[in-house]
Design a protein around this nucleic acid. Structure first.
Length: 232
DNA sequence: AATTTGATCAACCGCCACGGT
DNA sequence: TACCGTGGCGGTTGATCAAAT
């Protein structure tokens, strides 16, 4: 009889965050379903992916939405509907989950009120032009020079590791960004890669302390606890 | 001080698309 | 062509916390 391993649910603990982050930073993302086992996590691949994408991933902007962001969301929601991932692509530091939550809790109501007001007053004001304000993700695919590297990420043989050049840093990026295709990266994915590149991890001048303070200090007692011996 | 209510948001669930076999 | 595994998306839930009573 095949026994399915117990999969934990619910809120992630600091230790789990630590394991997942450390694992991804070291080995990258090669298969969400297999990864938890190797990372020492009793979580589903889906749960790991969600946690990483919505919370642990570098360069996620949290906290209050700016007025500009609010306007962008409202306008894009009008245009695109509830396609949160598409909307999030225009707000590269925000996650689709954050935008969805923010819409459902704040903006939806405001948008309805605003619509009612505008219809009541029959204003002639035209809606702002989204095309002008957006980064036009669909049409402007960005080119990155991506070179296959010789070594696969230890200890696995799952595919190649890539490097991004064109920045003054070179950072290994692997199947985290498996959407990389023929050296053309959509704008949406570009932001993810750029975020990763901008993260100083794995670089010589990486200010570990600063990154620690900005991301994980509140979870672990010390940087050493987080950074060293991250795996089980 | 205790309880209720409302807001927020992390996380789960179900569905779908896509690629590989 | 059908099936399966995987990743991604949007809807929804439930835990938590702050404000109100």
């Amino acid at each position: 009889m095949v026994r399915h391993p117990y999969l934990k649910k619910g809120t992630w603990t600091a230790g789990e965050d630590q394991k997942l982050t450390a694992y991804i930073m070291r080995y990258g993302i090669w298969n969400w379903n297999q990864m938890p086992k190797f990372a020492g996590l009793q979580r589903s691949g889906k749960s790991c992916r969600l946690r990483w994408m919505n919370y642990l991933r570098p360069n996620i902007r949290r906290g209050n939405f700016t007025r500009e962001e609010e306007e962008t969301i409202i306008q894009l929601q009008k245009k695109l509907g509830n396609r949160w991932s598409a909307i999030a692509a225009r707000l590269p530091q925000r996650t689709d989950n954050d935008i969805k939550n923010y819409w459902n809790t704040c903006l939806k109501r405001r948008s309805v009120i605003s619509a009612n007001n505008s219809s009541a007053s029959a204003t002639t004001e035209t809606s702002s032009n989204i095309e002008e304000n957006s980064c036009d993700a669909e049409s402007s695919n960005l080119l990155l020079s991506i070179h296959a590297m010789d070594e696969s990420p230890e200890p696995f043989d799952y595919g190649a590791t890539f490097s991004l050049s064109g920045c003054h840093r070179t950072v290994e990026v692997d199947y985290t960004y498996s959407m990389i295709s023929e050296h053309v990266v959509s704008s949406e994915n570009y932001w993810g890669i750029q975020s990763f590149v901008e993260q100083p991890l794995m670089t010589e001048d990486f200010d570990c302390e600063a990154w620690w303070h900005s991301h994980h200090q509140h979870y672990c007692d010390s940087l050493d606890d987080f950074w060293f011996n991250p795996l089980v």
